[in-house]
Design a protein around this nucleic acid. Structure first.
Lengths: 190, 190
DNA sequence: GTCTATATTGTGATAGAC
DNA sequence: GTCTATCACAATATAGAC
């Protein structure tokens, strides 16, 4: 693996599990077996490395989600699949919540670019859910409310499965999403 | 105002709006107009100040919530009042999400006491919601699921109104909580 | 491109006068 | 209890050899 990839891999692991602010450049170059000069050759500052981390985190997350969604054709099943995606992810990997939410909390308005990227990430997710929801035979006027409700349930599942180190929030969020979708289906669709 | 109070007030403001990790002792003593020796007289380390901040944050939050809940007698209305509480809080003050969740994200397993206090805070909130829910005439078996669903909606409302700097997540969460409660009421109660 | 060595600033924390 | 002065160390970042 080349130098830049080793840096990114190490930074990803440390920023996510240890935190962005508490991870220093020195620790990254130690664990990645890279010289300090090499890191600053690829990333002019820690801020730039942070931005690369945020972009990669968002890209990888959507990649993983869309792979999961491809397994289903029915739009309602696609919506519920986001919880299976989260459940699998939380089980396979050590889980520490959403990379994007975490770093947003860590920089709190000290880095406008990160704030922008995180909001854009969440907006893209909401839009993805909305597009799927419009394919379900529900009232058009309700589509946004339905998709945003699913979105909120997903967000809570992520945050609270991290807090409690348990998947009950994911299971309960999924169950509510399922009931909610069944209630909002048009009668003639059943 | 005495020295200790000035320290706590300044620390609270900075830890919440600027972040725990990025706020240094030097900035706190500057803005609180306190000497470094005085701070370390009251708090042996930054960690201790952090713990005091977490405890105060939790106490103040419950105090504010319970004051809001007292305005209502009907248990279902009490449950919905948590969203009014959040809405008011997000409007009056500059809002940066939940103090407890934020600092948990910032310390990620580097401070076991903070992790414990935050989990205990959330457990206490869940228990409060559960106790209110049992007073509603719903199936006993469902009480935990109902109260935890309300809990999840509240958590998402907090996190996402911070992300989007908008109260739509609060309004939508409240609307869903209301519909959800109506559906789970026993028919003979209506 | 990658390395070693160094510069500079800021951090949490302490000593000791008053 | 509060203050000033100072410590030891870690942070990000840079210079320059190879």
């Amino acid at each position: 693996m080349n130098t830049k990839d080793r840096i990114m891999e190490t930074a990803d692991k440390l920023f996510y599990f240890q935190g962005y602010q508490t991870t220093g450049i020195n620790q990254i170059i130690d664990e990645a077996n890279v010289a300090k000069g090499s890191l600053y050759n690829h990333f002019p500052s820690k801020k730039d490395l942070g931005h690369a981390y945020v972009k990669q985190s968002s890209d990888q997350w959507f990649k993983g989600l869309e792979k999961e969604l491809e397994l289903w054709s029915d739009p309602a099943e696609k919506l519920l699949a986001i919880f299976s995606f989260l459940e699998k992810y939380a089980k396979i990997n050590q889980f520490n919540g959403c990379r994007l939410i975490n770093i947003l909390t860590e920089v709190t308005d000290q880095d406008d670019q990160i704030t922008e990227m995180v909001v854009a990430h969440k907006q893209r997710f909401r839009e993805l859910l909305y597009q799927i929801t419009t394919k379900i035979d529900i009232g058009v006027m309700q589509a946004r409310e339905v998709s945003d409700t699913i979105y909120l349930l997903y967000e809570a599942a992520t945050v609270d499965s991290k807090i409690f180190k348990d998947d009950w929030p994911i299971q309960l969020a999924r169950k509510n999403a399922e009931q909610f979708l069944n209630q909002n289906k048009m009668p003639n669709n059943q």
